[in-house]
Amino acid sequence: KTVEVNGVKYDFDNPEQAREMAERIAKSLGLQVRLEGDTFKIE
């Protein structure tokens, strides 16, 4: 899975870890996480 923030992509081998990281980043920035294919987009 991939986490994308402001056009910057971070790859994770563990999908659960990617989801947790995406949620943590989104919460700290006051944004939403949206799953698009294999990418968690933070917008």
Rank of each mutant, 00 (worst) to 15 (best):
K1S: 11
K1T: 13
K1M: 14
K1P: 07
K1A: 13
T2D: 03
T2H: 14
T2C: 15
T2N: 07
T2Y: 14
T2I: 13
V3P: 01
V3M: 02
V3G: 01
E4S: 10
E4H: 06
E4D: 08
E4T: 09
E4F: 11
E4Q: 11
V5Q: 00
V5S: 03
V5C: 15
V5P: 01
V5H: 11
V5R: 01
V5F: 14
N6P: 01
N6Q: 08
N6T: 03
G7D: 03
G7H: 05
G7S: 04
G7T: 02
G7I: 03
G7R: 03
V8N: 07
V8K: 11
V8E: 08
V8M: 09
K9W: 06
K9H: 07
K9R: 14
Y10A: 03
Y10E: 01
Y10W: 10
Y10N: 01
Y10M: 10
Y10F: 12
D11E: 14
D11Q: 14
D11I: 15
D11P: 11
D11Y: 15
F12A: 03
F12D: 00
F12M: 04
F12N: 00
F12W: 04
D13G: 09
D13E: 12
D13P: 10
D13K: 09
D13R: 06
D13N: 09
N14P: 06
N14F: 12
N14W: 09
P15S: 11
P15R: 08
P15W: 12
P15F: 14
E16G: 09
E16R: 12
Q17W: 10
A18Y: 02
A18K: 01
A18D: 01
A18R: 02
R19L: 10
R19Q: 07
R19G: 02
E20W: 07
E20G: 06
E20C: 15
E20H: 10
E20Q: 13
E20F: 06
M21P: 00
M21K: 03
M21G: 01
A22P: 00
A22Y: 02
A22N: 00
A22G: 02
A22I: 05
E23W: 07
E23R: 07
E23Y: 13
E23V: 10
E23F: 12
E23P: 00
R24M: 11
R24H: 08
I25C: 15
I25K: 00
I25T: 05
A26P: 00
A26K: 00
A26E: 00
A26D: 00
A26M: 03
A26V: 03
K27Q: 11
K27L: 09
K27I: 11
K27G: 08
K27F: 04
K27V: 07
K27Y: 06
S28W: 14
S28I: 14
S28Q: 13
S28F: 13
S28M: 14
L29M: 12
L29A: 05
L29Q: 05
L29C: 15
L29R: 05
G30Q: 06
G30C: 15
G30E: 04
G30M: 03
G30A: 02
L31I: 07
L31R: 05
L31N: 01
L31F: 07
L31Y: 10
L31Q: 07
Q32I: 14
Q32R: 09
Q32F: 09
Q32H: 12
V33D: 00
V33I: 12
V33E: 01
R34N: 05
L35Y: 11
L35D: 03
L35V: 12
L35P: 01
L35F: 08
E36H: 07
E36L: 07
E36M: 06
E36D: 13
E36G: 05
E36I: 12
E36Y: 09
E36R: 03
G37D: 11
G37F: 04
G37T: 00
G37C: 15
D38H: 06
D38M: 03
D38I: 03
D38N: 10
D38K: 03
D38E: 08
D38P: 08
T39A: 07
T39C: 15
T39H: 06
T39D: 05
T39V: 13
T39K: 06
F40R: 05
F40Q: 04
F40M: 08
F40A: 06
F40L: 14
F40D: 04
F40G: 06
F40Y: 15
K41L: 14
K41P: 05
K41S: 04
K41A: 04
I42W: 00
I42V: 14
I42Q: 02
I42S: 03
I42P: 05
I42L: 11
I42G: 02
E43T: 11
E43A: 08
E43W: 08
E43S: 10
E43F: 13
